[in-house]
Amino acid sequence: MIAGVCTATGQVAKCHGNVNAVLTIDRAIVDAILAHARRDHPDEACGVVAGPIDSDVPTRHIPMDNAARSMTFYEFDSMEHLRVWREMDDLDEEPVVIYHSHTATEAYPSRTDVSFAGEPNAHYLLVSTREPDSEEIRSFRIVDGVVTEEEVNIVDATVKA
């Protein structure tokens, strides 16, 4: 068990002013993330969902290359990372969701995930593709090494067609 797991509301309230302990995300985006994870299985898949700064609404799905091409590790390619982060900056967006898949284990942040988590405002979405017929989708805040699970609220049509 990871040290420092805490209950949702208190920690989030302490760490963030404008964050709810829930990730609300459009079904079309979730479907695209799951398709990406299935496509790259058994390697881990990773990516971002950008949204307007301070909106907490993920609107633009950006699948990223896993430069590690590994079944147990993922890493953004550093040049693609810079390009995508600049693009978000130009569009007044931020990474609302950072996602990756675990392909043989549960959708819970590993110690490695916690060590690397460097975007305190992002929802860290994990997908497990270990079962061929069903997916596990869970979301977390990871701030200063503290993992806080939050609800995933999948909705229809928050994204404009």
Partner: peptide, 16 residues
């Protein structure tokens, strides 16, 4: 430009 590396995965920390 400084960016936090985005990386992780199921691999144990020591192995990573």
């Amino acid at each position: 430009t400084i960016l936090p590396a985005v990386a992780g995965g199921a691999l144990g920390f020591a192995a990573a």
